[in-house]
């Protein structure tokens, strides 16, 4: 093995452990997606709520900001105290980190809806719920999606660290690499797919965002 360059070693690792890498890739992806999904389920309604009640917005965004400042490794350790080792701890951490971009963007998106459109909607006799799903959500959709994209990118990074608490994922391969002597190739085998996942998922979400954004012209 010592005769091979790092690059050759990398391909060698892939050739022999391709299935393992793919398995970890899927696991990594799902952990991130679950975290972001839960954050969206909580964060979007919360963003809508604070857009309605301006007094709450400072508090809620403040709390989300504080969460964001805690280093991810520290956060994992703290949550581990409650949830123990394993996948759940990582999903919870991803959830917490994803809240800020999702809440903030939902809030910004709702704020960005033209007040005149809302006024005329209300004046025409729409209920609050009709205003929300006929006007506010379609018009703030792309901003909210921006928040979700942002959250997913962060989430993939955090999941990589999650391997420390035994959740598996591509981080697991990276840790193997750091523990092995001359493990550069193994580190790459974990790191490159992580980077690739980030780029691909961002592009994919961007595509979905454009496809689903309501038309405003032909």
């Amino acid at each position: 093995m010592t005769g091979l360059s790092t690059w050759d070693q990398f391909w060698y690792y892939f050739a022999h452990n391709g299935f393992f890498v793919l398995q970890q890739f899927t696991r990594h992806f799902l952990i991130s997606v679950y975290g972001v999904l839960f954050a969206a389920i909580v964060g979007i309604p919360l963003g809508i709520l604070i857009a309605r009640r301006k007094k709450l917005s400072d508090t809620v965004i403040g709390i989300a900001n504080v969460i964001q400042t805690i280093p991810s490794l520290a956060m994992l350790s703290i949550i581990m105290l409650g949830l123990g080792l394993g996948v759940n701890t990582v999903i919870a951490t991803v959830f917490l980190y994803s809240l800020l971009p999702i809440i903030k963007n939902t809030y910004a998106g709702m704020q960005g809806v033209d007040a005149n459109v809302l006024d005329s909607g209300r004046g025409m006799g729409m209920t609050k719920f009709q205003i929300l799903y006929l006007i506010e959500l379609p018009l703030s959709f792309s901003v909210i999606m921006g928040g979700i994209r942002n959250a997913l990118v962060i989430a993939i990074g955090i999941t990589a660290i999650g391997a420390f608490v035994g959740a598996g994922g591509l981080g697991d391969i990276i840790i193997r690499g750091t523990n092995a002597t001359n493990g550069g190739a193994i580190i790459l085998a974990g790191a490159l797919p992580t980077a690739l996942m980030t780029i691909i998922s961002d592009l994919l979400l961007g595509f979905i965002q454009r496809k689903l954004s309501p038309q405003t012209s032909d």
């Binding site: 209300r122 004046g123 006799g125 038309q215 405003t216």
Partner: peptide
């Protein structure tokens, strides 16, 4: 909500809904 559906409402800044076409806008009520 019922009252407003019976009363037409036009504002200075028009307030057409940008992601609905003219047909959808006209027939909102």
């Amino acid at each position: 909500v019922k009252l407003r559906k019976k009363i037409g409402y036009v504002i200075q800044n028009i307030g057409l809904i940008p992601h609905m076409n003219i047909y959808e806008n006209v027939t909102i009520v």
